[in-house]
Simulated scan of single mutants.
Amino acid sequence: MAKDGEKGQWKEFIWNPRTREFLGRTASSWGLILLFYLVFYIFLAGLFALTMYVMLQTLDDHKPTWQDRLATPGMVIRPKADETFEIVYTVQNTESWDSYTQILDKFLAPYNDSIQAQKNAECTPDQYFLQEDSGDVKNNPKRSCQFNRTILGECSGIDKRYYGYQDGKPCIIIKLNRVIGMLPGNNGQAPYVTCGAKREDSDKIGELAYYPPNGTFNLMYYPYYGKKAQVNYSQPLVAVKFLNITHNEDVNIECKINANNIPEGSERDKFAGRVSFKLRINSNN
């Protein structure tokens, strides 16, 4: 009997035909609760939308309002087949280095002289290409300077189709990470790249050739104003050609940026202002 009474109480709680209550509330009571939560959540959604609208009014479509700018920008190399930063191949085995040359072909395609002439301007070398806004009037889109592929000389892939890989004298392309507004040099001194072997491999690296001469990033490519402000921006590059590196041995190499206003990176960040990689050229000779 007790179980039947409990069952009857549950049925009456779900629906009470005498008071016409569902789950303990009448239809009008449920309607008022639903109306309250509907109005409440509409208010919250409206408050959120208003907050987002006000916040978005403070943002610039072409430049971040706030930047956690790195004191020392990172550097990367091409070709880079994976995250190991190793370039290993055999001179006589075309398949072992063909992928590297294809990566360089694809990477340098936007730097073809004809494409650069269509998209970018001829700038005055050795000085910053400043394009400041005029008060509230934005000077957008901003122009960009030409970086022609031919600047890379023997590492351009034009005269020497395979970037020296077939001769055991490979080229490596280096670029400095983009930082909005960075002026990398004081008193007209352009930043430049130097490469060298780690201490244990210092006698293996041999002679190097840099393109452009002295491995410089010309000042005319700075400052960078952002992807939306400079849609055609062509990042300057430096090519390093290894002319007589020791074959059949691992050579650990480090390249770094040198500038009179960029501090050296710390040992804890291997990408701050430098890049390290292993180069091994195998040869049957």
Rank of each mutant, 00 (worst) to 15 (best):
D126I: 07
D203K: 14
K80P: 00
T65S: 14
F40C: 03
L70Q: 12
D136N: 15
Y225F: 05
E86S: 12
A117R: 10
C155R: 06
G185Q: 05
V76I: 00
K169F: 07
K138S: 11
Q9V: 11
L104N: 03
W30F: 05
N248D: 05
L152F: 08
I151V: 06
P236T: 01
E21L: 02
N285G: 14
I262N: 06
Y192Q: 08
S266Q: 07
N258Y: 03
R25V: 01
S202T: 13
N232S: 02
N139R: 11
G185N: 03
Y53I: 04
Q92N: 15
T94A: 10
P110N: 02
M1I: 06
T101F: 02
S234G: 01
Y233H: 10
T58H: 14
E267I: 09
L50C: 07
E254D: 11
G215L: 06
R25T: 02
Y225V: 04
C171E: 04
L70C: 01
K198R: 15
N248T: 10
G168Q: 03
G226D: 14
L34V: 03
I77T: 07
L152S: 09
C123Y: 06
S28Y: 10
A109K: 15
A229R: 08
I77S: 08
D4G: 02
C155T: 05
N120K: 05
R69G: 13
I103N: 14
Q189C: 04
K278L: 11
I174H: 00
T26A: 01
G157W: 01
L183V: 12
L104Y: 01
S266F: 04
E122M: 08
Q166Y: 07
I245C: 12
P184M: 09
A197S: 13
W10S: 14
P212C: 06
F107W: 10
K175R: 00
D68H: 11
G206Q: 11
K119I: 02
E154G: 01
K256L: 03
T84G: 04
T246W: 09
Q189W: 05
A117V: 01
N252H: 15
E249D: 06
L243N: 15
I245W: 12
V231H: 13
F129R: 03
Y89Q: 06
L104G: 02
T51F: 09
T101R: 10
R268G: 11
N112E: 10
Q146M: 07
Q230G: 05
L47A: 12
M55L: 09
V275M: 04
A197W: 11
Y211P: 07
R25Y: 13
E249S: 15
E154D: 15
V193R: 08
T246I: 10
N282Y: 08
V238Y: 03
G164Q: 12
A229V: 00
N148Q: 08
L32T: 14
C145T: 04
Y111G: 03
G46P: 13
Y162I: 02
T58L: 08
I158S: 00
A81K: 12
N258T: 05
C195S: 11
N139C: 05
Y222N: 08
V251L: 10
K11Y: 07
P64C: 14
F277D: 04
I158D: 04
K11T: 10
W97F: 13
Q189D: 08
L237Q: 00
V193N: 08
V137P: 05
Y210Q: 03
P141R: 04
L34N: 12
I205D: 15
